[in-house]
Simulated scan of single mutants.
Amino acid sequence: MSAVVHLSGPGRPGPDVADLLTRVARGDQDAFATLYDAVAGSVLGLVRRVLRDPAQSEEVAQEVLLEVWRTAARYRADRGEALPWVLTIAHRRAVDRVRSAQAAADRDQRSAAASHTPVFDEVAELVEGRLEREQVRRCLTSLTELQRESLTLAYYRGYTYPQVAEVLGTPLGTIKTRMRDGLIRLRDCLGVGA
C-alpha cells in the first residue's frame, strides 16, 4: 500500500500522517515506524517548548508516541487534521507533566510554608504577578479574533506558524502579519518599551 505524498518541507515529499494513523490503528508496525519518523521532531519540539527540560521532554515525547500507537484508532479525519491531533496529545501530555511537577512543588512549598511566615515582598510579588496576568488577559481581548487565536495557538499551545495557518485555515503570510500586528498591539497595551 503506498502512502499519499504531501510536501513536508521545501521540495521534500513526506508521508500522509492520516493514512499512517489509519494503518497504525490496524497494528501496522511499519506504518508506525514511518509515522514516528514523520512526527517525532514536531512532538519533541512542542513538548520541549512546554517543559524546557531536555531529559523530561524526551521522556514525555516517547510517552506521547506510545499513546499514539495505542490510541490511533481514536483518530477521526472528519474532526480534524492528523498532525494537530498528534500534537494535541503531545501538548496535553506535556501540560500534565508540568501540572504534576507543579503539584509536587506546591506540596513541598505548603510543607515549608507551614513553618515559615511569608515576608512582605513575597506577597507583593504574588499580587504583582496576578495583576500582570490580568492585564495580559485584558489586552488579549483588545485583539481581533484572528490575532487572538493565532497568538494563543503559538504562545500557549506551542504551534509553529505553519501549524497555526493549517489549524485556522488561513494563508501563512496572513498569519504572520496578524501575529506581528497582534504582538505590536499587545506591546502597546501592556506599555512595554519598543
Rank of each mutant, 00 (worst) to 15 (best):
A124S: 11
L143G: 10
L131A: 10
V95N: 05
S100K: 10
V119G: 15
R133E: 10
V64R: 05
D53Y: 07
E58S: 08
Q102Y: 13
L83G: 04
E125K: 08
Q135C: 02
V98I: 13
E59D: 14
D106K: 12
H91Y: 10
P54D: 11
A61N: 10
R107T: 12
E81A: 15
H116Y: 10
V64S: 04
A38D: 07
V39D: 08
H91Q: 10
L35A: 02
L65K: 07
Q135Y: 03
R92Y: 07
F32I: 02
Y75Q: 08
T141P: 00
R70H: 10
A101P: 01
V127P: 08
A114L: 01
A103W: 04
S42C: 05
A90L: 10
V123S: 12
L51G: 04
A38N: 09
R97E: 15
A33P: 04
L44F: 13
A114Y: 11
R92T: 13
A105G: 03
F32Y: 14
T117D: 13
A82M: 01
E122L: 11
P84D: 02
A31G: 04
R93Q: 13
L65E: 02
A94H: 11
W85G: 01
V119R: 14
L66Q: 15
D78S: 14
L143Q: 01
D53G: 05
T71M: 03
R99C: 03
A77N: 05
R52Y: 05
Q56L: 15
E145R: 11
A105S: 14
R133K: 11
R79M: 11
P118T: 08
L126R: 03
E63Y: 02
E132C: 08
S115A: 15
V86E: 03
E122S: 14
I89T: 05
H116L: 15
R49W: 00
L140D: 06
V127F: 11
R138K: 09
R49E: 07
P54I: 05
R107W: 12
I89H: 03
D108G: 13
S115E: 13
R137P: 00
A72H: 02
A105V: 13
S42W: 00
S57F: 09
F32E: 00
R48T: 13
V119C: 11
P118A: 11
R79F: 10
A55P: 01
R137Y: 09
G80C: 01
S111R: 15
P54Q: 04
V39Y: 00
R49A: 14
R70G: 02
A77C: 05
D37H: 13
E63N: 09
V86T: 03
Y75A: 01
R70M: 06
G45E: 09
A105Q: 06
I89F: 02
A94E: 10
D37V: 02
L87A: 06
A72D: 09
A105E: 12
L131W: 13
A38V: 02
T71G: 05
E128H: 12
P54M: 02
D106V: 14
R110V: 12
L87E: 07
R99I: 06
E63F: 05
L143Y: 07
E122R: 12
L46P: 04
A103L: 12
G80V: 06
L140S: 01
A103E: 15
V98N: 06
T141M: 03
V39S: 04
R52V: 01
A33D: 12
V123N: 03
